[in-house]
């Protein structure tokens, strides 16, 4: 032997030692800590808002038809619940919103991929697509009513015009942020063209795409509410937007408050129950969620 080299067994042991020393420890947060850090603060904030609200009502800062008490809003909610209309109204809007959002995803995803991967398409419609994001979708309600009439089609048209650009842009920025190293590594493994898109580009772009979906949902919901408030007709079925508009027509302030709270609640609930867990799961599995 020319040298005092490491015997194979020594090498294996040495390596096992190094691996043990260097390996990254991944710790999961216990449920109690999650409750304490993530659930308690927002619950306190909501309680504080309701308390201030109640105090303002008791101090009679304004007429009670302008500022209803929390109890009045609660009564209005329980009345609707007893009539069996509360869930129906919420569901009418949620089902419209989700269906519209899913259509927006189905259209926005291939569109985004096309813009991201084909230079000519990007040059042609890229700027328009990002510009459309800053156009409030309320603007589309008037032409949509004239073109399509007062029906569900018009609602979906407004949702699509609001949400498709978000979904497509999210995917475009996701694709743009794919590290070139992954593309090179993919090509040496034999993933180019469509196989490269499927195995490398799309999974690598997932975090950006999810951010786009999240924004797309917010835009879907907002667009829908705008459409429901402006375009009310007995044929349309009662959604949250119409509930708000009916409250205005009947000077029913508790009803208006209830509608606003429900709109806010649905928007937050979908985000918290669907998008946030999805996003966190994707980021955590890639080691991109850093805890301090």
């Amino acid at each position: 032997m020319a040298s005092t080299d490491t015997k194979p067994d020594d090498l294996a042991g040495l390596e096992a030692g190094l691996d043990a020393l260097d390996a990254v420890q991944v710790r999961r947060t216990p449920v109690r800590e999650v409750l304490l850090r993530k659930v308690l603060p927002p619950a306190l904030a909501v309680a504080l808002v309701i308390t201030v609200w109640q105090l303002l009502v008791e101090a009679q800062v304004t007429d009670d038809y302008k500022l209803p008490s929390p109890a009045a809003v609660w009564n209005s909610a329980s009345d609707m619940w007893l009539q069996g209309t509360l869930l129906e109204v919420v569901w009418t809007s949620i089902s419209r919103g989700l269906l519209g959002f899913l259509m927006a995803v189905a259209i926005g995803t291939p569109l985004g991929l096309l813009v991201a991967r084909v230079k000519f398409v990007r040059a042609a419609i890229g700027p328009i697509l990002s510009g459309l994001q800053s156009l409030p979708s309320v603007a589309w309600v008037a032409p949509a009513v004239i073109w399509l009439g007062l029906n569900d089609k018009m609602m979906y048209a407004v949702i699509l015009l609001g949400a498709v650009p978000s979904v497509a842009n999210g995917l475009v920025s996701g694709v743009d942020q794919v590290p070139p190293l992954f593309l090179r590594a993919g090509r040496t493994l034999g993933a180019s063209g469509l196989r490269g898109t499927w195995h490398i580009v799309l999974p690598a772009a997932l975090p950006g795409y999810l951010a786009g979906l999240k924004q797309g949902w917010a835009f879907s919901w907002r667009s829908l509410m705008a459409a429901e408030i402006i375009a009310s007709s007995p044929d349309l079925g009662l959604g949250l937007g119409q509930l708000l508009e009916n409250g205005r027509n009947n000077a029913d302030m508790p009803g208006i408050f209830l509608a606003i709270i429900l709109i806010l609640f649905v928007g937050i609930a979908i985000d918290l129950l669907v998008f946030s867990p999805l996003e966190r799961w994707v980021l955590r599995s890639r080691g991109l969620l850093v805890k301090n």
């Binding site: 390596e15 691996d19 260097d22 990254v24 991944v26 890639r286 080691g287």
Partner: peptide, 17 residues
């Protein structure tokens, strides 16, 4: 010599691994 690493995520591995 990474027999046990099949299910490990990339960020759970050290640089050498």
């Amino acid at each position: 010599r990474l027999g046990g690493a099949y299910g490990k995520r990339v960020h759970e591995l050290s640089g050498g691994m």
